[in-house]
Design a protein around this nucleic acid. Structure first.
Length: 154
DNA sequence: GCCAACGTTGGC
DNA sequence: GCCAACGTTGGC
């Protein structure tokens, strides 16, 4: 099993959307960065993904979801009405990928970025580097475990 | 709202 | 291939 962290703006999409539909797989779409897209494509069934809330009141890790369907062409890239529409993408050579994920757990409290920065296990993680804009980040099991342990201590 | 850091675009 | 200009991200 692999571990990941994926950023989202909770005003748009959040761990609570998953928690409200705990048995339903939801599509993680709208990724429009090549490196993040490549990581999305690397996700395997049942991989664990930490959901990170950015650009909001409570910035940090909010919960866990799991991959239920591996990468497939992100339909929003073909939809002119979507904010994620990409006119340069074609059905034969789609640029962008989506994966489906399902709820696993919501933390009692969001584990704040400030706390993440204190975890020595995350020293080399782009998440805590200023200016990092990578929205899908691979985590080692050590990083993942450190975050879970820190969240459960709160 | 500000602004630094970053990724992408496009002219050359 | 270079790099300036631009638009976006994201913490504060």
């Amino acid at each position: 099993m692999n571990y990941w962290l994926a950023k989202t703006e909770p005003d748009e999409f959040s761990i609570y959307d998953f928690a409200n539909l705990p048995t339903t797989a939801l599509r993680w779409d709208g990724v429009r960065n090549y490196q993040a897209r490549n990581y999305l494509a690397d996700m395997q069934l049942a991989d664990r993904v930490l959901v990170y809330h950015s650009s909001c009141k409570q910035i940090g890790v909010a919960g866990i979801v799991e991959v239920t369907k591996t990468a497939y062409p992100d339909p929003t890239q073909f939809d002119p009405a979507s904010v994620y529409y990409d006119p340069k993408s074609t059905k034969t050579t789609p640029r962008w990928q989506a994966v489906d994920m399902r709820f696993v757990e919501v933390f009692n409290e969001v584990l704040p970025l400030k706390s993440l920065k204190t975890l020595p296990e995350l020293n080399d993680c782009p998440l805590v580097k200023p200016g990092s804009r990578l929205s899908v980040i691979p985590l080692s099991s050590r990083m993942f475990d450190a975050i879970i342990a820190s969240a459960s201590r709160r």
